[in-house]
Design a protein around this nucleic acid. Sequence first.
DNA 1: GTGAAAGCGCTAACAG
DNA 2: CTGTTAGCGCTTTCAC
Lengths: 343, 343
Amino acid sequence: MSDGTLAHPMGRPTLEEVARVAGVSRATVSRVINGSPRVSADVLAVVEKAIAELDYVPNRAARSLVARATMSIALVVPEDAHRFFGDPYFADVVQGISDRLDDSDYVLNLQLTHPSSPSEKTKRYLLGGNVDGALVVSHHSGDHFLASLGRSLPVVFGGRPLGDVANPGDYYIDVDNRAGARRGVEHLVARGRRTIATITGPADMPASVDRELGWRDALTAAGLDAGRVARGDFTEAGGIRATLALVDAHPDLDALFVASDLMASGALLALEERGLRVPDDVAIVGFDDSPYATRGKVGLTTIAQPAQQMGVVMADTLLRLLAGENPPHVTTLDTHLVERDSA
Amino acid sequence: MSDGTLAHPMGRPTLEEVARVAGVSRATVSRVINGSPRVSADVLAVVEKAIAELDYVPNRAARSLVARATMSIALVVPEDAHRFFGDPYFADVVQGISDRLDDSDYVLNLQLTHPSSPSEKTKRYLLGGNVDGALVVSHHSGDHFLASLGRSLPVVFGGRPLGDVANPGDYYIDVDNRAGARRGVEHLVARGRRTIATITGPADMPASVDRELGWRDALTAAGLDAGRVARGDFTEAGGIRATLALVDAHPDLDALFVASDLMASGALLALEERGLRVPDDVAIVGFDDSPYATRGKVGLTTIAQPAQQMGVVMADTLLRLLAGENPPHVTTLDTHLVERDSA
DNA sequence: GTGAAAGCGCTAACAG
DNA sequence: CTGTTAGCGCTTTCAC
């Protein structure tokens, strides 16, 4: 045995030892552990004392075996690690998930997988009864395996799946992107802006589509032209490119609704490059209320989405599912406007 | 039963069923699963066929119970989620860990904990025999619980613990920050720079200390003055502040060695603010080779650290520890210079 | 080479 | 209220 091995000198105490020390049967100890009401006050005290003395912790494996539940849930991230971890939005979502799970007996298994198709190992893991449920967080939604995962396992998705891969029985938590976008554009309109363009995200992401729709809603309602659109890719560089294209094609532009703060941050750079002042010449409203919103010289007015709450609700929904309850299939979270300098 | 419950129609096949289908005993099936050589070729074939037919996957809990191993390891992140996930460096480390673990039978349990002191739940979890080992990734290192965790559980740290909390028996993987910093400054010297200041990270992080030391090494070796130091905090805003202070106090400055790309990115902004050109007036070398290095208008010359490899080696070291081997207590990874425009 | 039997630590009827 | 009795699904001596 190597010196690196750090085995517990006498092994971990078992329920049986607790029972012996407390002078009761194992069943009684089990009842105490599981908070059964069928235990007399004095016996309860004795058992709890024994548990504390021995520093007893129930063995998860043994428990799982008999309970036929693994007490663990998978956090599936079908996304490039850089892309995922680099996004403050996801950071909050994960934090929310973790927070909610902290109040439960479940643990989180991190499954980083390739966006287009999870590895065989991950598939077997997910389908092989190694987790009781799964949480899928990603902007993507084209994957077949994951899309149909909900048929074999309780799954909650973060963000609405795209129309063609969504299954009727799916559970997902979404942000009201359309209403949020609309709210942002309404703010621009209220500020007196009349020539409002938008920079969208990729066309294959529901969030992009919905935000563009919201932009259009507000413009139509205000009787304004909704013809100025540039497609971005949710990156800063993309925001720069799109903004340049937009201002060059439409010199009369007086406002920009940008589908993400990161892209908006690029827009700020591009506008400066062209010598346009924000918000004087061009007002900007972003989306996310990410750290990027306050990173530049001019604070970004933006639509905040409750990323952490998204995580909490995702976890909560899955937990309810696992508890045999009937949570809503779709939960839509509200956004709100955060006013800063850019609009 | 709610409609949300997605139980497998007939339950998951057990080893016993495989045995029945294959017409052998459970012991034999077990041997096949575990790759025992004491199985005849024909029996092996029959059993494998049965396994494939039934799509059998061994039950982890049952296995863990008898093996007295959980086959799972904790990824402890004693860091604010934003701070952690927002750092591309960590993203790579996690990717590396995940990659390495994909080739093993272990799964990763994500444990997000408060930087200063893990929750009771996390402590119990870690100490309660729920994982076979732990990987601790963080810039911080002042926590007592984590620092001593290695005494109760096989643990591998990412980054050298600070002197006063490091235990002799600890295992950790580190980057040769000092040599890397020195290399960066040498590059500046070779480029003809003579008045080279540095922006450091927080004084309580080993990486900061080492990088400052490396900066000093190079300057001393070149016979240059190592008196211009500004303390940063590894944030962009901190980089801006430090740079402003530096250029105002030392107008003769012709180069900056900045302890992180994020801070260097702030330096770029600050220099522009002061009307100083990069690299003409002031050359800059950063550290990390993170996405920030290529985000701005001028590409950042920087010291690349092998973040992903760090993760791989961390996982690998822990795996070896768990296998009863004797991996090195300290592994130091090399850095290399990446030349771009800033120096 | 293969099977029979025992048991890992825990929970869940079933009695009392 | 509490103890007794069976296993959960798997690995592992120990015989054959």
